[in-house]
Nucleic acid binder design. Structure first.
Lengths: 214, 214
DNA sequence: CTTGGGCGTTGACCAAGGTCAAGCCGAGCC
DNA sequence: GGCTCGGCTTGACCTTGGTCAACGCCCAAG
């Protein structure tokens, strides 16, 4: 990990990122580098500037659950109380703005900052709840289809790129890499999506994808 | 549903329940009565006084995911933005305190109230994230074992009573009632728990239950 | 150009859990 | 008591997705 002390105008427009620019550090993380660790104390909050982040949780025997993926503009690390319940790692080389929670708290009262943190937490909860439904009640095919839908909706333009590998997708969806791979093949066979290499695709039949995603 | 306008000292000790006592209505819900509905506008917040509540989400073909269970002292209905993403129903005849969000907002600035709402939201998120791990990566037996553990930890004293039926457990854990039933039989066969009727049990071997729950 | 390693795909087989159907049990009712 | 109804359990069988192993592809290093 490397540090860069020079904030520059670049991030975004929200009050929060402005405050974080002022109070925070810029930090670079290499692909797969740990940002924070499950069960360690949580006193930093992170804003993704570029790259992407995953949060993961390990069972004692090594089974892994990916909690969520975070993209530029997303806040990471407020999902917890005093102890991180998930670890976070960079999906690819990433630049994050880091700020102490206690420093942010001095801006409590700054209504815009409060609201931004509140909104981010609310969104986090909504995503988790959506994820519950996917994990609990969808079939492998539906899981993969809804995952691709989500990505496609986030990106807007085609082609859509997958910032994560198959293992991360599998651990996010509660599947194995083999099953993810088979479902992708199947979706492609049905001309629902088309892959150009294994990290890039476009949607050929939105209606079908939507239907499969339930 | 019936209304009762006379607040009485009974609920709890938190600032929030005091405020809700003052601003809110007491409402009784019968078993399985709907408290609020998926996709409807969310402008009320509920505090469970007695009884219990489940939140559920339906897929178009009828598959159901139970999001969470709520017991006396828990806040229901802040899990959302403007639209409820889950429905809520009473597990048994229940008494809730109901208050308009907008009314609560007039207490924004009342630090104790703010903090209580914030804490409740944080807890909600933590529970959802714990639930993700269970749904994504645990086996049927582990799911049921961790469910019983959670209940046992919540209650403290034995015997522990199950306020919900098998279908609710199954929909919470992403299983079928048959599988839940089989796992309960199996746990009983292994002398890990002992059921006295299908809604009441005690833990015979805590170590074993803990180990099975992972 | 060749090699090797990492990641992804495919196939054959297996098992956990789902499905379907029957039976059981306790509670309320006549 | 006997009946009935709903919720729970059990059993036989089947399907989905997991496991294990082989193979392919791409790219970086030599």
């Amino acid at each position: 990990m490397t540090l860069a002390y020079a904030p520059s105008a670049h991030v975004g427009v929200t009050a929060l990122s402005e405050v974080m620019e002022r109070l925070g550090l810029r930090m670079n993380f290499a692909k797969d580098e740990e940002i924070f660790c499950q069960d360690e104390e949580a006193d930093l909050t992170y804003l993704v500037v570029s790259g992407a982040v995953r949060t993961t949780r390990l069972l004692s025997d090594g089974r892994r659950q990916v909690g969520s993926f975070y993209y530029p503009g997303d806040l990471v690390g407020l999902e917890t109380g005093d102890i991180h319940r998930f670890s976070a790692e960079a999906l690819s080389d990433s630049l994050l703005l880091v700020v102490k929670r206690s420093a942010l708290k001095t801006f409590a009262g700054d209504e815009a900052v409060d609201r931004a943190i509140w909104e981010a937490t609310r969104r986090e909860l909504e995503r988790a709840q959506e994820h519950l439904l996917v994990l609990g009640r969808k079939t492998a095919c539906e899981k993969v289809a809804s995952f691709l839908m989500d990505l496609a909706e986030r990106e807007g333009g085609e082609p859509i790129s997958l910032p994560m590998g198959r293992q991360d997708m599998a651990d996010y969806l509660g599947l194995t890499i083999e099953t993810v791979s088979r479902m992708l093949t199947q979706l492609q066979g049905a001309s629902v999506v088309e892959f150009d290499g294994c990290r890039r695709f476009r949607v050929k039949r939105w209606d079908a994808l939507e239907r499969l995603a339930e």
